[in-house]
Design a protein around this nucleic acid. Structure first.
Length: 185
DNA sequence: ACGATGATGAAC
DNA sequence: TTCATCATCGTA
């Protein structure tokens, strides 16, 4: 058993983000389970990160970021895209990792038509639209019971496979926009 | 380069 | 109660 739990997520956010690459996202739909590999993530780390929702303090929306690690934080941007994040760091330290890219490895049902056999879902808005992940998952633990969780299958990712860059769409974040908090394979 | 589309948070 | 803004994406 290799389900990633609180102890994995309750650490330095950039470290967790980097280590999430090559881990597996599972999504259960009507009894069947789809498996994806995580290919792109972004770290949003702490109260001083100007790109983070937590920068202006705790609000109703960002409250999950201040809670226990290993819990989903899902919110709507631009009126149409749900963003899927996993909460990181200690309780009361607001941080999360945005899941930006995944690749489908196994389809949940033959019936459920995913278009391409192994679609590359590159973009945080695309993957949630594809999976129909919305705020029903907000503030829910990442465990099988909730139909959305992450596993470590022991696949080793070499450092040379990991690229970094500034985060996307946060040009307003001053000096924080330069930080290499985006990690991708 | 821009519009779609609606929740959010700050100001009034 | 109003208003600008927004961790995006598809079309042009």
């Amino acid at each position: 058993m290799s389900i990633l739990r609180k102890n994995f997520f309750e650490r330095s956010t950039p470290k967790v983000a980097r280590e999430l690459l090559g881990k597996f996202l599972y999504f259960k739909l009507s009894g069947r389970t789809a498996k994806f590999v995580i290919t792109e993530v972004e770290a949003y780390d702490g109260p001083y990160d100007k790109a983070s929702h937590a920068h202006r303090g705790k609000t109703k929306r960002n409250a999950p970021m201040f809670g226990e690690a290993g819990v989903w934080y899902v919110y709507l941007v631009y009126g149409m895209y749900n963003m899927l994040n996993i909460v990181t760091g200690p309780k009361d330290y607001p941080a999360a990792v945005l899941i930006c890219g995944i690749k489908l490895l196994r389809s949940p049902t033959p019936k459920l038509h995913f278009g391409s056999p192994t679609p590359d879902l590159n973009g945080p808005g695309k993957l949630t639209k594809f999976l129909k992940i919305d705020r029903k998952f907000n503030n829910k633990k990442a465990i099988p019971k909730n139909n959305l969780w992450i596993e470590d299958k022991g696949v080793k990712i070499k450092k040379s496979q990991i690229k970094t860059s500034p985060r996307i769409g946060v040009d307003y974040a001053g000096e924080w926009k330069e930080k290499h908090y985006r990690f991708y394979l």
